[in-house]
């Protein structure tokens, strides 16, 4: 568990160092995620300590989101002004992507199968 937590924080730190060193616009936890994924690909399996820590942390992810989500409290006027536009944008784009994604996936699967 503790070793797993160290892994996660060290990978985030590694991501952070890359961001600073190369002036990347990508958030450091996301780079940490990518590096950990590559590390797991090379290693070929997931270390026990990482499995333990992720089984504790991942179910708590929604809890960690609440402090920043509650910030919506400060944006009442913006929601009032853009509420309708937001509702239309969310509903139309969601419906449209449920309509096209299945066909896109079937199309690309067939296209690549033909080639190989």
């Amino acid at each position: 568990m503790l070793v797993g937590l160290l892994y996660l924080i060290l990978f985030q730190l590694f991501g952070h160092m890359m961001v600073v060193a190369f002036g990347l616009p990508i958030p450091s936890p996301v780079l940490g995620l990518v590096f950990l994924f590559i590390f797991l690909l090379i290693k070929g399996h997931i270390p026990e300590s990482l499995l333990t820590v992720s089984s504790v942390l991942l179910p708590l992810l929604p809890l960690f989101l609440i402090p920043a989500s509650a910030g919506i409290i400060e944006h009442g006027p913006l929601l009032e002004k853009d509420g309708l536009a937001i509702a239309v944008a969310l509903l139309v784009s969601l419906t449209a992507s449920i309509l096209i994604t299945p066909y896109l996936f079937i199309f690309f699967t067939r296209l690549l199968r033909k080639q190989s």
Binding site: P29, L36, L41, L50, L60, F64, I66, P67
Partner: peptide, 22 residues
């Protein structure tokens, strides 16, 4: 006063690599 929880968002996001790998 809730920053402690917010700060855990980073390591928890890194941990998303595990389900991705699986």
């Amino acid at each position: 006063s809730s920053y402690l929880l917010h700060a855990m968002l980073g390591p928890a996001t890194v941990a998303l690599a595990i389900p991705l790998f699986q």
